[in-house]
Design a protein around this nucleic acid. Structure first.
Lengths: 237, 237
DNA sequence: GTATTTGTGCTACTTAAGTAGTTTAATAAT
DNA sequence: ATTATTAAACTACTTAAGTAGCACAAATAC
């Protein structure tokens, strides 16, 4: 139990905000954490081996990891999720034990807590109370994916870019977070477009005074202009 | 138990092929089915009330129901799923108890089995063995949604149309099923395009001899040509 | 039997997004 | 300090998809 206590004390605040295990008591956490160990992955680590995620399940403690897809023919990339503090992966593997054909890349130096898949499944089996949590969380993912599909079908690139920016504004600081230091290419990957097109739209936003841009840097100057632009987009059709 | 036995005897083969409850014993089925009742919905019934699915969960016995999304601004439609025999809905509501903003429309006369949501949840709680099934099924949905996203980002309309056709060919009869009697507009809704564009691509397929078309009718004439066209699409980029 | 509705097949046009290629600036490597 | 690398900014071009509109045929309603 020492190791469980250790990790708990160290990462208590992150773990408490972890939605997959929401509402779990401290004692349950301590018990579960016995099976975890800490890992550090340096920035730019790529995990291309789909097998890996059949055997361990991870909770992100710090840093960003992008989960992405590569088209086998065009070799284009699409970023499915930007995993951050308190996110978990790979839920697909956990739930059905089948390989998930996506790739991972660390955008920062990463700290994760890792647990062997079978131990987590065993724990869940012994504590079926927590199943409901897992179902709710899966439903949340499904809703996210579904809304992703809708956005792709219903909206154009400039709208998707606006939404990407607005969805990543910190409520308190009113500043961009998580995606503020990404190159245009990565922003493009997040909305399913190309660097050149994203840059074209960013230039427009820059010219209307809503954002400031520099190398690997997007900063929000006037959020109200962004909101107004989004309104305009919606009314257009 | 009489009613449970009744429904079981009547729909045993459909229920056995129901993935969400896969591997369930006949006795478990009988027990669960006590809580179900049968409903019939006539063709073209629209269910626009999202609330409805918070209170009952349904298993499709026969007929097709489209689950679709409408963009609040452009009023365009997108068909998310074509539910058929042995499909269930609404999984989103079941899993997290939150309203799901989609619409339903019966493409045929429909027979469903209905169960009050809370009874299903109660049953699941009492029989946690079945939780794993629900997780696996949810994972399958997530994988479908994810691959949907990828297709939208990586492939053009003609490829999506080819895939739609090929994914709906019956392995035995080699003929189109489920979507063979839909108007161009509905095919367009399935792949996130418009009637005119879908028709344009169908004309090309007709000219190369792979399909035959009539009013509300698409028929496959030569599947090998379709497969070759798909290959060509993939290599193009 | 006629009228209306619905779905198809087509042409012509518009537009957003992708593509290619060049210049310039910022950063990192030596 | 010099060079190499990477990202950004911009121009010019291509193309697929969407849009509008119309003619025609099939199905349905009256």
């Amino acid at each position: 139990m020492t190791s469980g206590n250790n990790l708990f004390d160290k990462y208590i605040s992150t773990l408490r905000s972890c939605e997959l295990f929401s509402g779990m008591t401290d004692d349950h956490w301590r018990e579960l954490l016995v099976n975890f160990h800490e890992e550090r992955w340096p920035k730019e680590t790529c995990i291309l081996n789909h097998q890996k995620f059949l055997f361990h399940f991870y909770i992100v403690i710090s840093g960003r990891i992008k989960m992405y897809n590569v088209d086998e023919f065009s070799e284009k990339e699409h970023t499915l999720f930007l995993l951050k503090k308190a996110d978990v992966f790979d839920l697909f593997c956990l739930m059905d034990g089948t390989k998930h054909h996506v790739y991972y890349e660390c955008l920062d130096n990463i700290k994760v807590l890792a647990i062997p898949m079978d131990k987590l499944r065993l724990w869940l089996n012994k504590n079926p109370v927590h199943y409901q949590n897992f179902l709710s969380y899966a439903a949340k993912m499904m809703r996210m994916l579904e809304s992703n599909v809708s956005q792709l079908i219903f909206t154009d690139i400039s709208t998707r870019l606006l939404r990407l920016l607005l969805n990543n504004v910190n409520n308190n600081s009113k500043q961009l977070e998580h995606i503020n230091d990404l190159p245009n290419k990565e922003l493009a990957n997040l909305i399913g477009s190309t660097r050149a097109v994203v840059n074209r739209h960013l230039q427009i936003l820059k010219k209307n005074g809503s954002i400031k841009i520099a190398r690997n840097q997007v900063e929000i100057k006037d959020i109200s202009i962004l909101l107004r632009e989004l309104e305009k987009q919606n009314k257009k059709l």
